[in-house]
Design a protein around this nucleic acid. Structure first.
Lengths: 140, 140
DNA sequence: CAATATAATGTAGCACGCTACAATTATATT
DNA sequence: AATATAATTGTAGCGTGCTACATTATATTG
């Protein structure tokens, strides 16, 4: 299906996710959970609502609710409805041990390096640019 | 996570899958189901086992079992253990209305065109080649 | 030939993505 | 002010992917 692009892209996506999940198991996290934690940490100071997370990762709200529920049950985040607009639910990080983020960031860098092994800087930029074009095309 | 490559690749993969599933709903099929039907059709004449399907799509056996179970419950495939090696389960297409495959192929081509809109033939080949390199790198 | 290893399939249970429908609060419209 | 619309979150249910453990049939080895 989808000639060459889709199967390849899906293989790559699934494969990275699988490896990442195996690695993150030691932290009792999944890749989707870790990505949200990192996003929240990067936005420390700013308020972050569920809707912000949906928009950033471009996933539907039931997907986000599910992931946040698991993070909350592990005690890694808390949530509270906004005092000014009670529709909005803001999400807050609780634990903030830098060591975890450092370890995840190291893994991210290692994986990125592995993925791009053997490619020149020009090729890497070309790949990113072409992927962005493809993504823009999907969005209409 | 994963700098730029992974999030982009995941967005593209999920987005294509979502569009395809919306389109395939009229046939009461999902993309994963349709891909297996097309694979079986392309292999008509040859015997195809569950293991062949796992290897081709590079997914685990429980994943394949689940999809085949749904296809079988819709009456689109049948299965039978091999007479020579009773560990092996062979999968057979039942219905074979060419119109369905034609419609799916048309959709595939339309989508591929849309994805690659605005790219030159050289860029398309470059993209495929770079994706293959990335995929090879993951495989170690 | 018996014991052990390997190969293929099955089952249970979970995370993550989706759609479809519902509920609550805020904003617009009349 | 009353009503309609929009925005945000919630719930139910499903498909696809995974891991971990189990089962059965074939291959291998002592």
């Amino acid at each position: 299906m989808f000639d060459d692009i889709f199967p390849l892209v899906k293989l790559i996506s699934d494969c990275i996710e699988k490896e990442a999940n195996q690695h993150l198991k030691q932290y009792n996290l999944t890749l989707s959970q870790a990505r949200i934690l990192i996003y929240l940490r990067e936005r420390m100071g700013e308020k972050t609502s569920q809707k912000d997370i949906e928009d950033y990762f471009e996933v539907t709200h039931p997907t986000v609710i599910g992931i946040l529920k698991r993070l909350e049950s592990k005690g890694l985040i808390t949530s509270e409805f906004d005092s000014k607009d009670k529709r909005i639910k803001n999400i807050y990080l609780t634990e903030n041990e830098a060591s975890i983020y450092k370890a995840m960031d190291d893994f991210r860098k290692t994986t990125e390096q592995k993925l791009l092994q053997g490619l020149t800087e020009v090729q890497i930029q070309e790949l990113k640019s072409l992927l962005k074009s493809v993504y823009a095309n999907i969005q209409e």
